[in-house]
Amino acid sequence: MFRRRHLLAAGLAPVTAGDASAQAWPQRPVRILVPYPPGSGTDIIGRILAERLQVAWGQPVVVENRPGAGGSLGTEVAARAPADGHTLLIADTGPLAIAPTLFARLGYDPLVDFAPITLLARLSYVLVVNPAVAARDAAQFVALARAQPGRVAYASVGNGSFTHLAMELFRTSEGITLNHVPYRGSAPALNDVVGGQVAAMFVNTLSSVDLIRAGRLRALAIGSQARLPVLPEVPTLTEALGKPMAAEAWFGLLAPRGTPGEIVTRIAADVATLAADPVQRARMEATGAEIAVTTPEVFAAMIREEGARWAPIVRASGAQVD
């Protein structure tokens, strides 16, 4: 498993005077492709990043949403873009680590078609239930599911999505049977949990913190390795279950394969500088995200390791997309 000790906010090689391609770049606006709709966790992080990078680069940095196929559509568009540093991609666990096993045919290879730049952040997922559900913690939820096998329903944003697989990991770990109700997107899924049509869901902190604080959702456990400042009262899954378990997605920045190494190195260094800014860190962490930047080499190794970790979970779930 990828170790946090490898996460580096410093140590990225500076661009030297001889790096002509990096010095000349960017020559025009830079677009950051986000393979999800506006308002998604990836989109929120992308827009915070774009706002700061355009100041650093002196060129407009525009977020372009290309949703579809669980993030794979926009990721494929990015893979086919010119490798000149003017098109970047923010992608997460789904299209980079889950999709290669989930899709029978995929239009890109995350290990071949991209130049990884840096990990950006980790985002925890929370096990939530409608407040009317007779479970005030994860252990009571497990007991409820055991007493009613197959009758307790949970929502996801689609077959093979992170929200689906996180619950499958939880379900198999606890030996319970749940009823999976897939939706087309996070908004309708979350609305039905809030409305009581579905009992439970794994949902990211970006989308759920305000609803939890307002009492419209009850948080049972959080998938981070430690409790989060935004929800300090919510135990981790490991605390709640008494055994190691995590439900944590990650986001990273990539460029198309063939992008000059000098440009990749410069972008990684610029992102690391922004990540070290206390104001920007506070802004990101207020959403429940944990800032975590790396070198390009470490991020490339992480993508490979995460793909290997999620492959058996996808297969065990039975989810597949033609």
Rank of each mutant, 00 (worst) to 15 (best):
I176D: 05
L49Y: 01
G158W: 03
L190E: 00
D270W: 01
M1D: 14
R80G: 08
A69K: 14
I32R: 01
A91F: 01
T16W: 07
H164C: 10
I222V: 13
V230D: 02
N191D: 13
G58W: 06
T42H: 12
I45R: 02
T265I: 04
S224A: 15
L178P: 00
Q320A: 15
Y36V: 11
T238Y: 04
G158Q: 06
G307R: 05
D137M: 06
G223R: 04
D277G: 08
Y154H: 12
P26I: 11
G258R: 04
T236V: 06
S317Y: 06
G68Q: 09
A9L: 13
L253P: 10
A300T: 12
V157L: 04
D322N: 12
G158V: 12
R281V: 13
G195W: 10
V152L: 11
P312N: 07
Q23C: 01
L127N: 01
R136G: 15
L119T: 08
L217T: 06
L120A: 07
L73A: 14
E76C: 07
P29G: 08
G74Q: 03
W250T: 12
R80L: 14
R47T: 14
T236L: 05
L96I: 14
V152K: 02
A147I: 07
W250R: 04
G46M: 10
L111N: 13
M201S: 15
S186F: 13
P116V: 13
Q197V: 13
V63S: 02
A200I: 10
E64H: 09
G41P: 02
V61T: 12
D113S: 12
A219C: 09
P278G: 02
L254S: 09
R184G: 10
G318F: 07
V30Q: 04
A187M: 03
P100N: 09
G258K: 06
G46C: 11
A316Y: 04
R283S: 09
E248L: 15
P232K: 04
P110Y: 06
L88R: 04
V279I: 11
L253V: 12
I90H: 02
P149D: 05
V194I: 15
I44G: 07
A282I: 09
A249P: 00
F141A: 08
V128P: 00
L211T: 09
R105A: 14
N179I: 00
D19W: 03
V30L: 08
L102I: 08
F299D: 05
L217D: 05
Y183T: 02
P149V: 10
V142G: 04
G58N: 07
E290D: 11
Q320G: 09
A139W: 00
A286E: 10
P312Y: 05
L102N: 05
V198W: 05
A147N: 02
L49F: 02
